[in-house]
Write a protein that binds this DNA or RNA. Sequence first.
DNA 1: ATGGCTATGCGACAAATTGTCTCAGGTATA
DNA 2: TATACCTGAGACAATTTGTCGCATAGCCAT
Lengths: 186, 186
Amino acid sequence: MIEPSLSDNSEYPSLLIVDDDEVFCDVLSKALTKRGFSITCAHTIDDALNLAETSTPEYAIVDLKLSSESGLVLVEKLRNLDPGTRIVMLTGYASIATAVEAIKLGATHYLAKPVDADEIMAAFERTVGEANIPISAHPLSVGRLEWEYIQRILTENDNNISVTARILNMHRRTLQRKLAKRPLRE
Amino acid sequence: MIEPSLSDNSEYPSLLIVDDDEVFCDVLSKALTKRGFSITCAHTIDDALNLAETSTPEYAIVDLKLSSESGLVLVEKLRNLDPGTRIVMLTGYASIATAVEAIKLGATHYLAKPVDADEIMAAFERTVGEANIPISAHPLSVGRLEWEYIQRILTENDNNISVTARILNMHRRTLQRKLAKRPLRE
DNA sequence: ATGGCTATGCGACAAATTGTCTCAGGTATA
DNA sequence: TATACCTGAGACAATTTGTCGCATAGCCAT
């Protein structure tokens, strides 16, 4: 695909991804490059700020849980640098409390992982109110979402089924059965 | 911390409670009167708007699920009447999606029922930035994740249950039933 | 106003999925 | 070895879903 992006004067809108998970950054980076953004990645708040101070991005995707610090402070700072920056907060540890805070701090939207690139794109477009014109991509089915989520928590816990079941608040037997069944696609 | 009233000639700040549960209104009304507010109650959006147009309240507590309509539209309208109105959105069916929407529409805070009067008071006084939000240690349970996801797709589709069910590839009857249940607190 | 189309709430019953309990190993550690 | 985990799996009850059906309501074009 196209790969020009001379950082600054690129003809593509600049998008900063901030997440301490490098694999995640890479995957997302590729997906969004394909969609016409000029991507930069940062894995820490400090890096992100340095980058943003040099050239403020038009869009940003910020993970809530950046190692020890909270991505919330980054949202605030990015907004201070340029109130026009559109920021989507992303997190694997979603909660209403942090969602409220993120929006108050100026985030454009707040999404719980797992998400795909299309959902993030949609989030950037969203405005309040009617908001929902596009919705082109088909979101994951609930079954699929559950599968992805389970897989994530499972790997985060060394594939320990018992622990995962407890964390997910589901019966171990049920988790066993779910894992035994699908790799379903929809 | 509560500022003296400016609008009416009442010496107490005016607070409008909008909830279709009359018992809940009464209880809350008493509790807040005791704390120095001048309370008015409404059980429908129309009533609330009529009251608010006559004399805009300084504070408002709005339930998300008002019979058929969404309390979100009321938040927007109250804000249009007076951007200074401090509004707390309250709901027994809390979700990240509606929380995000509420805050974007100008709500001061968003709380899940059950709440007590003190929490509401605190919510009114809360400002951005401070509140030590714990960045929840645990991921959401699968059940909760599903609820959040459903709520998201639902709001993205204008609360159309049939459409959402189709998108999510689940039976409409099942979606109805899931929505009827309250989200689990986990 | 009448028909066509869609959304919605809800009852009923069968089909499928979960919750629970239970066993019988496996592995690591004090 | 005893203890404390993890795991897979059978059996059966308890719940949840899938399916139908039906009545009601709003919208729109004829």
